[in-house]
Design a protein around this nucleic acid. Structure first.
Lengths: 174, 174
DNA sequence: TGAATTTACTGGCATATGCCACTAAATATG
DNA sequence: CATATTTAGTGGCATATGCCAGTAAATTCA
């Protein structure tokens, strides 16, 4: 199986919308980001082992813990997730008793997300495992470099970036 | 390294949903990557407009085009995707007539993925739109910096990185 | 050469994530 | 105050993505 790895000939492409040869992730920022996220996700997921949870769930439990008792909306915003997507993602955690949704007493539209005792315990267990993946990543990538990268990713994930992006290009925007 | 710095002033929107302490993405490389990927995904998806397709599908169509007529396996490997995940992701594209799976004549286990004429046309249309998002991203992030970032993401998505990661840590196995 | 193993894909199940429509509740408006 | 509007969540539908089991075909081996 060495014949069909990554061809380059094929379609002599007569279109001018042709993209420079190579792979899509070598020039599309979003494709590159997704691809790297998939790889990292697999690596960190592996570290979660037989805990029954994945890296995404570790992120969620951790962010809930770090946020105190955020509202669903606030948690979604900070995670840069659609509020309904977050709602769906929380379901299995609620079903398994790791998380609870508690209606606010001051605003009946609002619900606060909080860890149950079991959820907090699980988060700590996962943190132990996470550190292994994190350490390995940094052993390869470099601790300082990793910190720098996270800074960049934080920026790309920020509302500030989103605003600048929308304002850019044509210069109009809403 | 339990340093709790980072985060200068979380983008606290205009509501009272301010997040207290640090955020998971300021520590976890994987969480940060996923969050940035979500944000970028939303931005690039928006650029796809009413084409009925998303950025992930643009990536797929583009990579198929750039690869020639890759096998399902080869495409999955290059995209750093599970082969079955790729199979599922291809279904809507096949259903909509943009992609075809053609059994190999030399190895009956294998199927080649190829764009139909419609798929190729769609890919070109999407490329036009993609360029808008790409240009905006680079207007904010910087063209050179973006290229550098893609290089880093490419590395993190590479098998080379995966091997180093697995070999790292405790420094055994391999 | 026939059995054991590996490889490539498929289908099922589960989570991740987004959009839209809908409901309830809080707010702004006249 | 009554109504219009905005805000927070929920449920449905669709794609994204992964794991596992099963199937078929190719390859390795005894």
């Amino acid at each position: 199986m060495t014949d069909q790895d990554m061809r380059s000939e094929t379609h002599a492409a007569a279109d001018d919308t042709v993209l420079p040869a190579g792979a899509i992730w070598s020039y599309c920022n979003s494709s590159a980001m997704r691809r790297a996220a998939r790889h990292l996700g697999q690596l960190y997921d592996d570290a979660m082992g037989d805990t029954g949870l994945k890296g995404t769930q570790f992120s969620l439990l951790s962010q809930i813990k770090l946020s105190g008792e955020p509202t669903v909306k606030a948690l979604a915003t900070s995670m840069v997730m659609d509020i309904s997507a977050l709602g769906h993602t929380l379901k299995p955690l609620i079903r398994d008793g790791l998380v609870e949704l508690v209606p606010s007493t001051t605003d009946r539209r609002v619900k606060h997300v909080l860890l149950t005792a079991e959820g907090a315990a699980k988060q700590e267990e996962l943190t132990q495992r996470w550190q292994v993946a994190q350490a390995r990543f940094e052993a390869v990538f470099g601790e300082a470099r990793a910190k720098e990268l996270r800074g960049i990713l934080d920026f790309i994930g920020s509302e500030e970036f989103g605003r600048a992006y929308r304002a850019g290009g044509t210069g109009d925007e809403s």
